[in-house]
Amino acid sequence: MSTDSQPISASSPAFEFKSGVITIPVLNLFSTDINVITHQLREKIKQAPEFFTNSSLLLDLSPLQDQELNLALLVDAIRNSGMRPIGVRGGTASQHQDAKDLMLPIMTSQNSISSKQAAPVKVEIPTQESSEPVASTTIASTVINQPIRSGQRIYVKGDLIIIAQVSAGAEVIAEGNIHIYGSLRGRALAGVQGDENAQIFCSDLQAELVSVAGNYRISEDLNESNRNTPVQIFLNNQALIIKNI
């Protein structure tokens, strides 16, 4: 049974148009040989099946530089591999016609890549190297007494201690720890050179973003129980922990 079968009054809008930005994988094609493409694609999918299976995909034909390609066969092969092509960019007029026949939209190719890369699909699988903690004991800490305003950016090598607020739109960055005795409404990034032992302390968490050694969390993902409270932020096995203090 459908759950959204409630009657909608004729006056209230049934939908709205909004522009949204999503990131989807782009397949830059360097070959027109469908067997080769299919083979290599399946190898890739094997490496990270949960990432690729049922993932939408944009086909970029511009690296082919107008070579002939049987788009219908290719799309079929990709679908059989488990991915879902949702559009085409670049390519020739006849390829565009093929795409239309396949009901695939043609995207404007403002960002199409024509560089010659070896791998047909480039996936960033996070490979965090556990670099040696940077010794920050020898570097003096910096103390700031005035508010860090929107648009200001502070970078220090050692520890950063702020005895005022950090406004929304401000950025405080330290290679060591960050202490904020005030509201943190902007961004705080500790251990930016890879020190995983770095921590952030603040007396009122309202941050846009907090990060320790590259592991970050944005405002939307903050736990409501941590918001507007004094917290300690640190890494535990690559996981960013926000703890009330």
Partner: peptide, 13 residues
């Protein structure tokens, strides 16, 4: 308020 905050940053720097 956000823009004023930005302006205050410029005033102080």
């Amino acid at each position: 308020v956000r823009d004023s905050d930005r302006m205050l940053g410029i005033l102080s720097s």
